[in-house]
């Protein structure tokens, strides 16, 4: 037994070394056959697949995930970027939560006005038939990973507008909801608790995001 210390995981090193020779098997050719004719989304998809396949087969994916998981998770947990989007009464309380008395910003919240820069969608009111496609678009415009908070009775189930002809029975009928905050309207303290619940959920449920499928 050699006294020389082996750095890293020997099994893994062997794994990487042995697989490099048959790289052709793992990586596919670009879908259209020619690099120049690829559209940008096709190219991205191809790169995505190629890197994922290599990382998966060689075991690198798990390694990178384990290293980056706590870092990404920490970042996601402590700086949620909710969308600056108000529907009804709860939107006022959402604004009031940012006011000096409650100061929800100390949880790391940064409200952004563009869905492209956000990862939390707060549905803070009744969703009407006319709004539903727009809200769905907003949700789809947000980059992954993303979470949805249903704030208040209207967003949970329709609330006081349960028998209306134009209000959808809850936001979870068309987008996945992560945290429900009851109340009519939700108090700023409850919103704060909702964000803490979301933090807990991110820590438990969401692993690192490098090469995630």
């Amino acid at each position: 037994m050699s006294s020389k210390k082996v750095r890293g995981n020997p099994g893994l090193r062997r794994g990487v070394g042995s697989k490099t020779t048959d790289l052709d098997e793992i990586m596919e050719d670009p879908p259209a056959g020619d690099w120049l004719t690829l559209r940008s989304d096709q190219l991205l998809e191809w790169i995505d697949n190629a890197v994922y396949n290599v990382a998966e087969t060689t075991g690198m994916r798990e390694v990178v995930n384990r290293v980056t998981r706590p870092i990404f998770n920490y970042g996601q947990r402590f700086s949620p970027h909710p969308l600056h989007f108000g529907i009804m009464c709860c939107a006022i309380e959402m604004g009031q939560a940012s006011a000096p008395d409650h100061d929800i910003d100390r949880l790391g919240l940064v409200y952004r006005s563009s869905p492209r820069q956000c990862d939390v969608l707060i549905v803070n009111g009744p969703v009407c038939e006319k709004l539903r496609p727009k809200l769905k678009t907003l949700y789809e415009q947000m980059p992954e990973p993303k979470w949805v908070i249903a704030m208040g009775e209207c967003a949970i189930s329709g609330g006081p507008y349960w028998d209306s002809y134009s209000v959808v029975a809850g936001a979870d009928t068309f987008i996945p909801v992560d945290v429900y905050i009851p109340g009519c309207p939700v108090r700023p303290e409850a919103l704060m608790h909702g964000f803490l619940t979301l933090q807990k959920k991110i820590r438990e449920k969401e692993p690192g995001m490098f090469l995630r499928r």
Binding site: E129, G158, W162, Y165, S166, A169
Partner: peptide, 22 residues
């Protein structure tokens, strides 16, 4: 107020709509 393509005029008394009663 209502989206384009909505059928009917809801405030009429004979307008029938579905209520999601739990």
């Amino acid at each position: 107020l209502l989206p384009e393509g909505f059928a009917g005029h809801p405030l009429r008394k004979d307008y029938v709509y579905e209520i999601h009663e739990e």
